[in-house]
């Protein structure tokens, strides 16, 4: 069970959060201009790295805000959390 530092509420138990997959996948502004392959790239392709990964998390049972996390999937260490719209802090 992680202890996650919500950028708004502070340290909370993992049970208050839900995970939302890979971060920084921006929804295309003009989907109609895209080929099937380009759209599929946005829709389906996710990295799922062993190692340091950027992820989206939601403080679902707290402030309900989405934020990003730098997490090492090999040892579950959370290196940093940062707000939506912010650049990932360098590891």
């Amino acid at each position: 069970m992680f202890l996650i530092n919500c950028p708004y509420c502070g340290e909370r138990d993992q049970s208050e959060f839900s995970a939302g997959g890979e971060a920084h996948i921006i929804r295309p502004k003009q989907p109609t201009e895209l080929s099937d392959d380009q759209w599929a790239e946005f829709l389906f392709m996710r990295k799922n790295i062993k190692g340091v990964q950027l992820e989206r998390w939601n403080h679902a049972h707290g402030c309900r805000k989405w934020f990003n996390m730098v997490r090492d999937t090999s040892n579950d260490k959370i290196h940093a959390v940062y707000k939506m719209g912010e650049k990932p802090p360098i590891k």
């Binding site: 921006i26 989206r56 939601n58 679902a60 309900r64 989405w66 939506m84 719209g85």
Partner: peptide, 13 residues
């Protein structure tokens, strides 16, 4: 609700 909040917070702030 969670999905709509997600879009508002991340795609369409």
């Amino acid at each position: 609700l969670s999905k709509l909040e997600d879009y508002l917070q991340t795609e369409w702030p």
